[in-house]
Structure formats: C-alpha cells, structure tokens
Design a protein around this nucleic acid. Structure first.
Lengths: 198, 198, 198, 198
DNA sequence: AATGAATGAGGTTTCATTCAT
DNA sequence: TATGAATGAAACCTCATTCAT
C-alpha cells in the first residue's frame, strides 16, 4: 500500500504548500516535487497523475476531518450542541492550517469540473454528517419537524463554506473561531425576530 | 461605445453557450467565435483579450440582474418579502437560462484568482443589496436586532449559492423555483423549532 | 500617376514618422494611416501593399538625394572636393531630418531580405555616383592609379554609413556635419602616417 | 552549466543552418528543433526563449572570434600587420562558414532593436580590438598622429563589414580572402595618390 | 525505488488586406 | 475616391508525463 510509505504524505503536504504559495495553476508537478524533495518522476510512483495528487490531498485532509467529526457527534448531547461542535471543528481546521485554508477555499475551486465532481464525492461524507445531525434534531424535537433535510443541509454547509471563504479572501484578518458561535446561532434561529433576544 | 454594437452581446451570448457546452478550459476563443458566427479576430475588436470576454459576460449578466433586484426592493414591502423576491429572482435567472446556470455556478469558478477577484467585485453589488435588506429588516423589527450583518449576509448568499450549485450539479433534475419559498423560510427561521409551524 | 496626388507623399511622410517613432515592427499600416489622416483602406489606393510603402519611401527620399548629388558633382572641381561635397550632403540629409535618419540607419535595416535587396537596388544609384568620383579621381591622377574601384567604393560607402549609424545609435549627441571633413580626410589618406600632417 | 552540454551547441549550430536556409523570419523554433534533432520543448531546456537562441548564437560565434583575434594581436609585430591579420581572420571566419556568413551579414540584421542592441554589445569587444590596434599604430608612429580613433575605427569596421556584406549579397561569387590584402592597403593608405605606389 | 532529461500537443493574439457601402 | 469593420492564418512556449539509467 503506497499510502503507508513516508513519501506519500510528504508529497501531499508538499502539494498543499506549493498550491497555497503559488496558486493552483502555478503549482506545477515539478514545483511540488521540489517542495517534497523528490524527483519529478518519483511523484508518479505514488500517484497516477497530477489530478490524483489533488484528489488524494482532499481525501486525506478532509477524510480525516470527517472521521473525527463523525466520532465527535457519536456520543450524547443535543443536535444543536453537535452542530456547534462541528462548526468549531471545521473553522478550527482551517484556522490552524493557513496553507490548507487557502488550498481548499480558493485554489482547489479552480480545478476542472471532473476533479470537482470527485471532490464533491469526498464532501458527501461531510454532508452526511450534517444530515445525521439534522435528522437527529428533528427527531428530538429540537429542529422544526417539517425541515427539508436537503435544504437545511445546503444552508448549513453553504453558510459555513461562505463564512470560511470570506475569511480567507479577507486575508484572515479576524479570528475565524470566534464566528462559530454566532454562525451556529444564526443557523438555528435564522434572521427573524421573535421578540426575545436569546 | 463598443457595448452598443450588436456583435458585443452576440459574442457574449456565444461565450455563455460555448463555455456551458464545452467547459471553461475547452472553450477556446476559436470556439466562441464560431458559435458567434464571426472570425476569431473579430472577437478582439470588441474585447481586449479572452479574460475580458469572461469578465464582461459576468458584468453584463449579473450587473443587469443586480440592477433589477435593486429596483425591485426599492419600493414598499417588508424586508422578508423583499428577501423572498430576491431569492425568486436569483433562482429564476438561473432556471430560465440553462447555459448561464452552468457557466456561473460551475465553469466560471475555475477561472484564475485574478479573474475571480474581478468577478467578486461585481458580486459586491449583490452583497450590498442583501445588506440593504438585512439592515431594513433590523430597523423595522422584522429581523433580530442583534444580527451581525456580515454573517447574515454570508448565510443568505451562501445558502442561495449552495442551493443553486447543488441544483446544477444534480443536472437540474428538480424545479429550482419551488425552492425559493422554503429556502426563504429557512433563512428567516433557521433550523430550530419553537412549537409553532408557521 | 498616383505619385503626383497629394496623398501619395502624405502617406510616405506619415510612414517615416510612424516608423521612426514606433519602430519598424510596431509601425502597423493602421498607425501609418492614422498618422497620414486617412483610412486604412485608402493606403491601398496608393500602394500595392505595406512593402510597397517602404520601398517607395526609400525611392522617394534616396532617389531625390541621389539626383541632387549627381548634379552637384557634374560641374568642375577635383574628385576629392566632389567626394567631400557628397559626404557633406549625405550627413546633412540625415542631420536635417531626425526621423529619416532613424528610419534609414536603424529601422529599415530590419526589413526582410527581399525588401533589402530592393532597397539595395535604389542604393546602386548612389554607389554609381561614388564610382564616378573614384574613376574621375584615378583619371585625373588624384587617386591611386591601381585603386580597385569596387573596394574603394565599399570603403567610402561603408565608412559613411557606419559613421552615420553610430551617430544615430549614440542618439545624435554630437554634430554629424562636423565629421564630414575628417571622414573625407581619412578616406583620402587612410590611417597611415607619412611624416607630414596635411 | 548548460553551455557545456552537447545539446547547447547542437541547437546553436542548428539555428545557424535553419536561419541561413530559411531566413530570419521563417526560421521558426520548430524548424530549429527539427534541424537540431530534438523536440521543440528541448530548446527551452537550454534557452530562455527564441531571442536567447539568437543572442547566444552571436555570443558564441563572435565571442570566440573576438577572443582569438585578441590573442592574435597580443604579440609583437607592427600595428599594420596586426590589422591585416584581423581582416584576414574576419574574412576567413565568414569564408569558411557559408551559413554563418549569411546569418551575421544578412539575417541577424533584421532582428528587432532590442536584440540588435544586445548584439552590438558583443560587437563592442570587436571594436575595442580595433581601437587597440589604432592606438598602438599611433604610438609607434605607423599611423597618423592626429587620427581620430573613433572615426578610424568606424572606417575600418564599416569597410570590412561592407565588403563582407557585398560579398554575401553577390552570392559569394569571388574569393573573399583575396580581398584582405587590398582592403588592408586601402585602409592604411586611403584613396589618394602620392606619386609612389607602395 | 529513484532520477531528471526529453518529449510534443495545443491555444491566444496580431495585423496586413479586402470589400461592401 | 474613400471608408473601416471584418477577416483568418500562423507561431511561441508550457508542462504533465515517460523511460533509460
């Protein structure tokens, strides 16, 4: 299994840095190889082609994240608290890894349609986690019983993603972590006012 | 003024079709020219370069849309009703123009960072419209008084955009227009349940 | 005869300016037309193609010059004095017309081989004038009887041309006219020293 | 160091042939690559761009030549004899390499101003060699003490260059080498007659 | 396993020239 | 005569991938 050899992650980590620092289209295979400290040809002993590096990058980084989240929400607690934890974990992941934030929020988006479909496949795991929380919330009565799960999921993911992207595009000038709670509040309560400020 | 000549819009419309049908990177200038029924060189009588076609495309299509929305929400009505109109207008724009939906939601996102920054500039106008509605809603007491405008805007835009992108990626299998009302309801009320289904 | 119409010389003069100011490869037909105050298409009513403008330019400017020189040396006087007059006329032509100097000494040289052959054809007239002076000098005993006319002509033309080109490349910092006499002296006497400074 | 690899000179030599046979503007990179027996892309492993091939070509061929001349005139001997050697070396270089003669005397002259300036920089070394000889000649009393070094240099270079160019334009019908001696004689003695044939 | 020199396909843009008005 | 919008051919360079060592 190639994935267990040290150079596999070495190349993926190099790709994150190379893409973050040079931009998607300027991160040539030779730059990634140089950053990884291996020869160009060596890349092809571990990855089928360049696209394979990118999809593997996303799988490794996001896959781990999804597993972590999945465990995190497995235990007890309200759906709302689980949602908050998820948002915090998501923001934390990007906040802690500057390079990764740039790569996932900006650079990887300019990949071609094919690659983006495969990235979306990875994301499906994340969306399923969100779905789980929503369904649990509905069942426990925390969330509105007539919630359209798909739409709610799109709101949750779209909002988190948009908040993260804006933060990266604003050169990370403010503390993303501090947005987790207000974002969470917004997703639960929406914009509307009901006479009581919670 | 080049923009008033018929070939200007002819080329832009051709670009939308060519990009939608071939993909961003496979929509060569020669393909756009062919689609427009002009010679390759003619393109450069109306646009500085290929990137200029794309930014102009976005400015024309989105710019017009933003103006329309802006007028639409100028009159009377609640902030909530204005938000609904906006969402309907947004979904309608994409629903009515299959090619445009593909181009704005999928293809144009793989443009390089420079072009994306210029696209974001156009989008700013849209975000300001959203801001206007939010602020109006807060002032009239419809929306929560302690709403963070920036976050609310990110939720609204992020949700609309994610819903639209999902619809396109799902090959537009369902009727996007019908989502306007439930999406609007979600944005106003959030996921949370308060014992009353409105 | 097209040559007698006012626009013929108008275009040629515009070409001199356009080439001098923009360089040979940046002097597009449209620039020449603009400088001449006519439409692009009008150029083709007076010239077969772009090359025809350039060759005509050279013929007009140099042709006139050669005729003038030819008349100048027709009268009495020593061969040496005629040579001096010719050098002075040559330097004067370039000294008086800044644009023409740049065009003939620098820009027109980057024309293709074909055009250069045709330019050389025009130059033949000039070379024949030089030959006339040399032969006359030999016959009168002023010049060495065993002079190889072709070589002497190459020395005279090569020296004048090199002096003129150097002057233009040095941005015409010094007075070219003042070089006529010392250049003439050099051509007559060579580098060698014979104990007497004339 | 790229210059030491065999393909570096292989490509330069191919460029000389391709340019000589096809003309400057018809010597596309692909033709040079084909002539060199390498792929188009290989060219760019050794040269920054097409212009870099041409300037390198000139530097290699002319640079070597200038060094050789410089050593040649370093030893003893009269200034006049050194001048003769230089002319012979110059004519010999072109006479021995048909392709190089065409390239330097005709084709490379149609390069753009920028490239020509860089070529002139290389030529400066040659002009300095000429200056050395002139100054030495003045100091030893061989040459006229009131010689203007710059003008003398222009005469010498202009004459040699014109003779060489004429020879190439006449399709090298006669033996250029045989012109070295009479050209040398002309440069030393000029056109004038002093009653004694030396 | 590792190297890195070599490959070669593919696209944007310019500009001389035409021709309908 | 004069216009100027439209034409369309043609080339430099990049970079993912291979393969002999």
């Amino acid at each position: 299994m190639k994935k267990n050899k040290p150079k596999y992650m070495q190349i993926i980590d190099a790709a994150v840095i190379a893409i973050a620092e040079n931009g998607y289209h300027q991160a040539q295979v030779s730059k990634i190889a140089k950053q990884a400290g291996v020869a160009d040809g060596t890349i092809y002993l571990y990855f089928k082609n360049k696209e394979d590096i990118l999809i593997s990058l996303f799988e490794e980084k996001m896959g781990n994240f999804i597993e972590k989240i999945d465990q995190m929400i497995a235990g007890k607690g309200t759906a709302a608290s689980k949602l908050l934890k998820m948002i915090e974990a998501h923001f934390s992941l990007l906040y802690e890894d500057h390079h990764l934030a740039i790569v996932t929020q900006l650079e990887l988006r300019q990949s071609n349609k094919d690659l983006r479909h495969r990235i979306n496949n990875v994301l499906k795991g994340y969306l399923q986690v969100i779905d789980k929380i929503i369904i649990e919330g509905i069942e426990t009565g925390e969330f509105s019983p007539d919630l359209d799960v798909r739409l709610a999921r799109q709101m949750i993911f779209g909002t988190i993603d948009e908040a993260a992207t804006s933060w990266v595009m604003n050169e990370e000038k403010y503390n993303l972590l501090k947005l987790a709670s207000p974002v969470h509040h917004l997703l639960i309560n929406g914009c509307g006012f009901r006479g009581v400020v919670e």
